[in-house]
Amino acid sequence: MKRYGSVLGLKPDQIAQYKRIHADVWPEVLEQIKKSNITNYSIFLKEPENLLFSYYEYVGDDHEADMAAMAADPRTQDWWAICEPMQAPLDTRREGEWWAGMEEVFHTP
């Protein structure tokens, strides 16, 4: 199992809508998350900075392939098409990232 954390901005005028849609995530999206070997997936919001922090645990053997399968899923693509206009990616993210990856620097043994 490997842990992943990432951060992303959220447009201030989209906070209520973002919370609303995440209170009722589509079942097909949740199923794809499971199929992609992701567990304990959470998104936290830090206001007033309007930063989203994402955390998940990956239990598969090929993270890159599982993330590609998720990205190719049509229903997940529909979900992202709704979410992405609400989001504000960080200028400091790596090329090719939407959510900026973070380095884990501490975890209790």
Results as ranks from 00 to 15, higher is better:
G9C: 05
L51C: 14
S36C: 07
E49R: 02
C83G: 10
D62A: 00
D24T: 01
L45H: 14
A65P: 09
E31T: 07
H63S: 12
Y41A: 09
A71V: 05
L51D: 14
S42T: 06
M67Q: 11
M67F: 00
E31M: 06
K34S: 09
I43A: 00
M67R: 07
A23M: 03
Q14R: 11
V59D: 12
E57G: 01
G60H: 03
T76L: 09
L90W: 11
P48V: 14
Y55T: 10
Q14S: 13
V59H: 05
N50F: 04
H22V: 06
V25P: 06
H22I: 04
N50P: 05
H63T: 09
K46P: 01
A81P: 09
V7K: 09
N40D: 15
L8M: 13
L52A: 10
F44M: 13
D24Y: 00
D73T: 02
E47M: 12
N50Q: 10
Y58E: 14
N37C: 14
W26Y: 02
R20A: 13
V25N: 10
I38L: 08
H63G: 04
Q32E: 15
S6F: 06
H63Y: 12
R20F: 09
S36H: 05
Q77E: 13
C83V: 15
D78N: 03
D66T: 04
Q87R: 08
I33F: 03
E28W: 01
D24F: 00
A23P: 00
L30T: 10
V25S: 09
R20N: 13
D91L: 12
A81M: 15
A71S: 08
P12M: 10
Y56M: 11
P85R: 06
Q14D: 12
E31R: 05
W26S: 02
Q14P: 04
E84K: 07
D91K: 08
Q14F: 02
N40E: 15
E49L: 08
K35R: 09
V29I: 12
I38T: 07
E64R: 00
V25K: 06
L8A: 06
